[in-house]
Design a protein around this nucleic acid. Structure first.
Length: 276
DNA sequence: GTAGGATGCTAAC
DNA sequence: TTAGCCTCCTACG
């Protein structure tokens, strides 16, 4: 269940558990066996995260590049259970194991190959090395909707379907407005808010976007349970009442992902590009 | 038991 | 624009 905050967290998890000592590396499933053999017994020397891409560095041997995709998972524990045929990559040391299942990508890369991946990704709000300027250069010239731009990893790295929906709600922005229709001030606010939300996501290992004053307790309503673990305004709340205004949350398919928004709190902008 | 969806992305048409 | 990747979980009979 990975957006950028999860991947940053996973990088830190690997550092805590495995960095600085030799690691047993295997691929019980077999699809990563050749590379695993090259890495087995080597020391984890570095980890890195950029957007939804995770990198595990093994000195001169190279970088393991992991992308979880939609359903990849990394599981940690103390003593490794008997491996099953879905475990693509297993790391083991004296006190820990990590099992990788179902990733879109698990490959051994050279340093230049890793660099090439960074170069095709947009700025990541969780990396301190950039502000939102590079993203704004693309957004301000684009006729694409802001909802689609936020999901484009070349524009901004690490935002997924939850943060996309939630950040637009938090700033009352109609998801169908185009990039070029956005003001600089609106974009700066979105970028800053994403950085805050995602940093909190790293800390808590879940996505919470509801401001304290809108929590059910503060609104005099019974506590609720969102099934993905965090408190959100609109994500996966289609046809339920908006926490703020009570209007039914709407949903639509946008670039084959489910979009959620409140039509009242996120009123249609001046150059609405909604179809149909 | 089975179908379908999911916090993602790419290659091919 | 569409199919494909590849795993887990839920909803539905």
């Amino acid at each position: 269940m990975p957006e950028g905050h999860t991947v940053r967290r996973l990088a830190d998890d690997h550092t805590e558990r495995f960095a600085g000592a030799p690691v047993r590396v295997s691929s019980p499933q077999g699809k990563f066996s050749d590379s695993a053999a090259l890495l087995d017994g080597h020391t984890l020397t570095a980890t890195d995260a950029h957007g939804k891409h995770l990198f595990l560095g093994f000195g001169d041997t190279g970088w393991v590049h992991i992308h979880l995709g939609l359903f990849g998972k990394l599981g940690f524990g103390a003593a490794p259970p008997p491996p099953t045929d879905t475990v693509r990559l297993r790391l083991v040391n004296a006190g820990h194991y990590a099992d990788l299942r179902g990733p879109t990508t698990c490959a051994l890369l050279t340093e230049p190959e890793k660099r090439a991946i960074h170069e095709r990704l947009g700025p990541d709000p969780l990396r301190g090395d950039e502000d939102g300027e590079r993203a704004w250069q693309r957004i301000s010239r684009s006729r694409t909707t802001i909802a689609a731009l936020l999901m484009d990893q070349k524009v901004i790295a690490g935002v997924g379907n939850v943060y996309r929906a939630e950040v637009l709600f938090r700033h009352g922005i109609d998801p169908y407005r185009t990039g070029r229709d956005l003001t600089r001030a609106e974009w700066d606010t979105i970028w800053a808010d994403l950085a805050d939300l995602m940093r909190e996501g790293v800390r808590n290992n879940r996505i919470d976007t509801v401001r304290p004053e809108h929590l059910p307790e503060a609104m005099g309503r019974p506590p609720r349970k969102d099934d993905h673990g965090g408190e959100v305004y609109v994500y996966r709340r289609a046809n339920l009442p908006c926490h703020i205004c009570g209007t039914e949350i709407r949903t639509a398919d946008l670039v084959s992902r489910n979009l959620f928004w409140c039509p009242r709190c996120q009123p249609t902008g001046p150059s609405d590009s909604r179809k149909g």
